[in-house]
Design a protein around this nucleic acid. Structure first.
Lengths: 235, 235
DNA sequence: GGCGGTTAGGGTCAGATTGACCAGAACTTC
DNA sequence: GAAGTTCTGGTCAATCTGACCCTAACCGCC
């Protein structure tokens, strides 16, 4: 539905967005949290979130939340809805329905919050005992992580975590960081190149790191939206 | 985020739910549409939807939409969020953010709308030329169908379309109806029983139909939430 | 330049999985 | 009892998977 003649007690309510920005930091999956300098939230980290303005799309509000609360402008980042959290009592200030997003970005952009604090946490830290999140964000964060882990299996979304061009080792490190398992390099290569339009080879070669090693071929993102065959997690 | 000191033009706006109730009818996937008897929507079918009340969860609102607009009480039906549609101009009456759901149910319950009309349409009819849907429901419906098709691959959700106990033929007919392809009965059996906790065998046997045939073993839903290994669609 | 260390990229091989197909079991109706 | 239908178990070849190895191509150091 959408409008018109609904019977019943319907009153004004607020719509917000909360964004789980995920990235790879130090070889591990990390998530952006903020600590706004509002008194009622003192000491509690939360996902960056904002109310949605009247003339603003949900996606725009998500980008604005990242910009206003963490100083991160990520116009190219992958952004998708996670789900909407709307329990009547999830926010103590009143009825707020929150549309949660996940955003994926390559190397962590440095947060520069205009106010309050903002930084990345390894996902292992979150959900730990000492880090209590505000609102129901304790529920949103695991949902976001599981969504990312799952989407790596059957979509080319891992490429959203790396800058172009990238090597297959770069891409493999993404899978290892998000899934938390080691992946055999040779078998990984075979699966990635056999998946249709997952990646496209370029003419370039990487320059080896300080330890040496054979230069790796460079790739760009392919046009696939789903992977055939899929990259399944080890049981 | 959720509340407190957000700057900017934030005003009252409405939250609604729209439900895509899917079922198997005559061996094909079907979707419930309603035609409320409000003058501004005359002649246009739409998904059943209602505004969310202040004290009501989103899931409750989805159930209420089915009950009030189609007379369908489906407390046991599978209900999950699809996504949230919130473009500023999606509803001509003002800013309405709509949380779309998909609901799956066994044999189509007979719609008994208190007002207006409600009936099931085969999904092939929808999206066709002659059936124009209201609002942006033209977008929601294909999303819902694709979600169902996809979820049949890696979750045991197909069991939500059949009553317990069921035969493996019942379950196979679900896959055939939703995917629109034929599935080999013998291979289907092998995959279903090898998937961990997808279904559990009971002691019962089905009674053959009028044409005869060997009685089939009866099964109940298992406890799995994801399928290992998955039931992949033919390319 | 030669040598050990490191990473990329290609291959092999046994075991598991898949799709196509067949055959028997267990029921129906005629 | 015969013919038709459906369920269930099986075979078999092709494919896919995971584990592992080997060579290529770079590094730094002697």
């Amino acid at each position: 539905m959408s409008s018109s003649a609904d019977a019943g007690r319907v009153s004004a309510c607020a719509v917000a967005v909360d964004v789980a920005l995920l990235t790879i930091r130090d070889g591990a999956l990390a998530i952006l949290l903020v600590e706004p300098d509002t008194p009622d939230l003192s000491g509690r980290w939360s996902l960056p979130g904002r109310r949605v303005r009247d003339d603003e799309s949900l996606d725009d509000a998500a980008h604005r939340a990242l910009l206003e609360l963490a100083g991160i402008a990520a116009p190219g980042a992958h952004l998708e809805q996670l789900r909407t959290y709307g329990e009547p009592n999830r926010d103590p200030h009143g009825r707020v329905v929150s549309v949660a997003y996940i955003a994926l970005t390559p190397h962590p952009p440095e947060p520069r919050p205009p106010a309050g604090r903002a930084r990345f946490f390894a996902v292992e830290e979150v959900g730990g005992r000492e880090l209590a999140l505000a609102y129901d964000h304790e529920r949103i964060v695991p949902d976001a992580i599981e969504r990312a882990r799952s989407k790596l299996e059957y979509t080319p979304l891992a490429t959203a975590f790396v800058d172009e061009p990238f090597t297959l080792a770069d891409l493999r490190h993404v899978y290892e960081a998000v899934w938390g398992v080691e992946v055999d390099a040779a078998n990984f290569r075979r699966k990635v190149v056999s998946a249709e339009d997952f990646v496209v080879e370029t003419a370039g070669l990487s320059t080896p790191g300080p330890g040496g090693g054979r230069p790796a071929k460079l790739y760009r993102r392919g046009t696939a939206t789903t992977l055939h065959p899929a990259m399944l997690r080890p049981r």
